[in-house]
Design a protein around this nucleic acid. Sequence first.
DNA 1: GTATGTTTATACCACGCGGTATAATTCCGG
DNA 2: CCGGAATTATACCGCGTGGTATAAACATAC
Lengths: 225, 225
Amino acid sequence: MTGATLAVRDSGPMNAPLSARDHTRNLKRERILDVAAELFFVKGFHGASMENLCSALGVTKPFIYYHFKSKDEILLALYLASVNSALEVARAARASSDDPVAQLKTFARTYAMLVLTDRQRIALISREKGLLNAEQMRDVTALGRAFLDVLSGLMADGVKAGAFRIDDPALAAHEVNGMIAWAINWYNPSGRRTPQDIADHMEDAALRLVGIATNWPKAEGGPGA
Amino acid sequence: MTGATLAVRDSGPMNAPLSARDHTRNLKRERILDVAAELFFVKGFHGASMENLCSALGVTKPFIYYHFKSKDEILLALYLASVNSALEVARAARASSDDPVAQLKTFARTYAMLVLTDRQRIALISREKGLLNAEQMRDVTALGRAFLDVLSGLMADGVKAGAFRIDDPALAAHEVNGMIAWAINWYNPSGRRTPQDIADHMEDAALRLVGIATNWPKAEGGPGA
DNA sequence: GTATGTTTATACCACGCGGTATAATTCCGG
DNA sequence: CCGGAATTATACCGCGTGGTATAAACATAC
């Protein structure tokens, strides 16, 4: 919301609005994180070495250690960025309308787009668990819980409004989340389907999942062929 | 189906029905695989060392290397066992009835049970990709594709029968699969929900996901209150 | 009771890992 | 054009890794 999803080193006594230096610093950090996410996605966190990261970036090792103090800190930053963006999507969907049905449609579409376009980062949340200790993961865990709470709240509102035919909002939240997030495991960027196509389908599927009958078939003609 | 899901060393000229020796050998292998799955689930494949595995098993390193020729072979065996059991579940569901609706119900329930009770092994399929080369993964990939084909076939039959209100069977297969399989990421064995509870809900959710309205509310009284 | 299959004990290896040290250098905003 | 920040170059360290060697001990079936 405030614009800075990643922790930003405050420079000086006040929380000054990003000096030019800090700005470029953050750009470098972002670049490192991007390449690291791709590497971790392909080879796994432990499978990707810092030397791999160096050569992929075309830099030397001290360069990276100038910007991050350890490999773990890179992973943590990736965790936080991912779960933060997911939380933002959920909150934005909640704020987008008063109607739970519209909220769910917005959520499903934008969340699917996030997952499909940012899958290398998003995938880390589910794949690389337990690599950091609980203390380090505290914020990540809290944000993840917040994400699910927002989504559960959406479901509960849909039930209250008499629109959703589900009997367990928390479980329905997991189901919608899983249905969409699982795409990280099968989506092929070089395949036929575009993220927009998939997001469209996910929107409809989310509605069906909460018990809302969608128009069918797509062209009019009534059910039953 | 035939009883042996894992590759069994054939002992002798004929494919003899498991000598006592081979039998115990397979038990040992299974025990190793079980503990390895737990370790890989918690610490990741690269994060879990062979020494970790040794002490968890209470054996020495040559013992393991007597039964498996490398760490990779252990991972591969786990892959195969997992994807095989998923495929068996899908095929059994297909064979359980002529009615696609009944097939889907059976699939959702049994697949959810498999995921929840075997999540440490199942999770590997989605988490540890790209660690083995394509050649080694050939069989795993083929079985995974077969699993999705069976599921897509179920969906297509449901459409043909006029029971499912979906317009893309392959995508619906991914959606149902994801909705259920994602449980590996949130299910807590020491939580309130039992696998049976969850499987029940997943069965209903799968029906809704393909556009079948379930009875609602659970107790009669008609919709709207 | 002996041959074969299985497991331990113990020690080892080469390698890649995350991370650091230090000095020299290049960049660039004020 | 200077001075501090950023980056390279290069070399190194200790450690844990996957995997192996070798010899001895145990089990067990025939």
